[in-house]
């Protein structure tokens, strides 16, 4: 599941690229200007994406806290 980490590129694409298409006030979405609604959407998606990455990352699977000293360099 190593590919999952590349999902982290999406917030950059969505926020930096999306403004080219959604830099408008109307139509209001949930009462918010379109640009603001787009950014809020991406904040929510970023939280989801980072949660998925966290769940799939084997580094977080170990129930014991990962102590720095235990980690050896490759």
């Amino acid at each position: 599941m190593a590919w999952v980490r590349y999902l982290a590129v999406l917030p950059f694409v969505g926020l930096l690229g999306g403004v080219f298409f959604f830099n408008r006030v109307t139509p209001l979405v949930f009462g918010m200007p379109l640009l603001l609604a787009w950014i809020v959407l991406w904040i929510l998606l970023t939280a989801v994406i980072m949660t998925v990455i966290y769940r799939c990352d084997p580094e977080n699977a170990d129930p014991a806290p990962d102590l720095g000293a235990r980690r050896t360099r490759p």
């Binding site: 809020v40 904040i43 929510l44 970023t46 939280a47 980072m50 966290y54 580094e59 977080n60 720095g68």
Partner: peptide, 22 residues
């Protein structure tokens, strides 16, 4: 921090917390 996992967990929580700014 006591362990590195705190940062990875926070990376998912902090974006939501940021919505206070809204």
């Amino acid at each position: 921090a006591k362990d590195a996992r705190a940062f990875r967990r926070n990376a998912a929580l902090l974006p939501l917390y940021q919505l206070i700014l809204l």
